[in-house]
Design a protein around this nucleic acid. Structure first.
Lengths: 356, 356
DNA sequence: GTTTGGCACTCTAGAGTTCAGAGTGCCAAA
DNA sequence: TTTGGCACTCTGAACTCTAGAGTGCCAAAC
């Protein structure tokens, strides 16, 4: 159910009782962070088995790689593999209270100026509700529709470009021109571009213009010359690449599992050097529903001891971005997963809603 | 020289030798973080005094509140007051190498789109050079000149407002209108506003418009009605309030002085809840040159064990903002102060330079 | 009067010891 | 297959001990 595509989890068959014991053990360990011993487990499991029996089962589970002992006479703790099985096969999700969902909805459905602000908002929300670090990724948008473009002369050779994209968002860009343009010229150029290209994909605009330019290099009238120079620079670079927003990192300082200062520092620096983490999130773009990376399953060393719970959100049926949380592997998955899931749906709903 | 206005440092007279010993002690403690004992100090001071003599001096300094012993048989460490005196009277600054200044200049003088990006850049720079947390504050600008305003109809009742302010910066705002306006109406309104108010302070614009509105409530023609509704919302709130950018917080994790995880967490959270810290920076706005807050001198409990080194930067002779670093009180002031100072000057230079 | 050596005293950090408690593995009996 | 019993292991906390660093004070020296 919640897997990673990269690692098809092939688990040997475990009988009912063994699974149940593993489940109780993991839940217990998530709750209080201590290794769980046979006596405790015997008490918690409600199976009326003696500790000795439990010990046999635990020994099996250890041999299979689901558990390990920190040392001879501590209890057992789940391994990454143990968590994997727990999540894939044993976890009972706690569905979110409708009231909670309603609160989330209200907090997401705030007026915002741009997608970065929305990402910040949702990221804060995730972090606040789960007490983990919230992450919202803004992916490269493969379809960027030009809604409107305007030019304003700033000074001698500087022109302010305003792009309205996707009916959602406004971008400013300041470009340097070869010669000064006056307001009228710019207005005409904008009118032309708007008339010709509004509603089109921004890359198509670029290509169409380049074609026009090549075809009619010499015979361009003054208007078209203006249009071409403006457009060349305006659409030169992709509006912006991938990016993400992290909130609530400080929550990570509180969980004892990550109290090693140096590890924590590395983690925080990973949040700043975004490149690596982006790669991880990229993988989630193509998956459906909630995805979970446990510890180094992510192939990302810094995340040792951490899990990442993500869900993609879709706009008009197309996966547009990924959001989620990062926290200690020992996190309350039963609560976190529904939150991440619901948040992704709510964000999608907001983004799909017709704009004012 | 580097003081705080709030706390006029009244120091009793210390003789030359005592001052010199205090200086050596503080320098030594900054270097290796350990309490300094009489034997060590006797060796380092180069004064050919016996440890016993040194002990007498240290006892005096302790009584005056410049030093304290962590416990009976450790050496002494400087108190906040000790640091204060060290900085005010004893510190030898290490002037920056010209090449270093040149590197700083190049890194600051990058093309940027807006002041937030510039702040980020400078903040990163400060943090990178000093290995402390860099902070750049963008203050409330008391004079905001309206350069140009444009309106673009987005959908039914939504209008995009573009404000060009101070010839430096562009702001977008989306406003909801009571009735739909078409492009022509909006264009006329913009033309009117630009003609009337370009180059004026934005608050004056607001006041002038409100006056007009009151005087001619009933007799407004359609154009003026449009103008008024647009302007009301456009200039309703101050464009934006104070804000600051922090970079390199992770450096703070490395210094042993701040290794208490809980303290660190509080500090990090203070960076997020910006309000408090802003107040501190506000105080520096009105001072000249480098300012230093030692530990709780700032009146800001979270900064216990930290010092803040700031310098205001000026544009056209007017103090516009503050930048600086936050780090452990035991920081290399002789290096940090010149860096902060130079950075402030360089940033001022960039901001004062005529724009393309 | 200042500086110094001497000396008794104090405190810490680290190393070693001990001990109770928790948990295990294995075995033989149920 | 489950269980009780038992010997064994390991940790963590408490305790002790000690070397080392540093102090304060005093009386002698400069």
């Amino acid at each position: 159910m919640y897997g990673t595509d990269s690692m098809p989890a092939s688990h040997p068959v475990l009988n009912e009782r063994t699974q149940h014991l593993l489940k109780i053990l993991v839940e217990r360990h998530i709750r209080d962070g201590q290794p769980v011993g046979s006596r405790t487990l015997a008490r918690d499991a409600g199976l009326d088995l003696s500790p000795a029996t439990i010990r046999n089962v635990m020994a099996d589970l250890e041999e299979l790689g689901y558990l390990r002992s920190p040392h001879t006479s501590a209890g057992r703790v789940p391994t990454a593999r143990g968590y994997r099985f727990f999540i894939d096969a044993l976890l009972n999700l706690r569905p979110l209270d409708d009231r909670v969902v309603e609160i989330l909805r209200q907090r997401i459905d705030q007026p915002v100026q741009n997608r970065a602000e929305l990402a910040r908002l949702v990221s804060d929300l995730l972090s606040g509700v789960t007490h983990l670090a919230g992450v919202v990724m803004l992916p490269r948008r493969n379809v960027v529709t030009l809604r409107q473009v305007e030019f304003l002369p700033l000074s001698e050779n500087r022109v302010l470009v305003i792009l309205v994209l996707n009916a959602q968002e406004v971008q400013n860009r300041i470009i340097q021109t070869r010669r000064p343009y006056n307001a009228v010229e710019l207005q005409q150029a904008a009118n032309y571009l708007n008339a010709q290209f509004a509603g089109k994909d921004i890359r198509q605009v670029r290509e169409a213009l380049l074609r026009d330019l090549r075809e009619a290099r010499d015979s361009l009238d003054r208007l078209m010359q203006t249009v071409v120079e403006m457009a060349e620079q305006t659409f030169e670079t992709e509006p912006d690449g991938d990016d993400y927003v992290v909130a609530g990192q400080t929550h990570l300082m509180q969980c004892a599992d990550l109290s090693d200062l140096d590890k924590l520092r590395q983690l925080f620096e990973a949040f700043n050097h975004k490149r690596d983490l982006l790669h991880l999130f990229d993988q989630c773009l193509h998956a459906e529903g909630v995805q979970i990376f446990i510890g180094e399953e992510s192939g990302f060393v810094v995340l040792e001891g951490c899990s990442v719970v993500t869900a993609p959100y879709t706009v008009e049926g197309q996966v547009l971005g990924v959001l989620g949380v990062i926290g200690p592997t020992r996190m309350a998955y039963d609560r976190v997963i529904p939150v991440v899931d619901a948040t992704a749906r709510l964000l999608a709903a907001v983004l799909n809603a017709p704009q004012g």
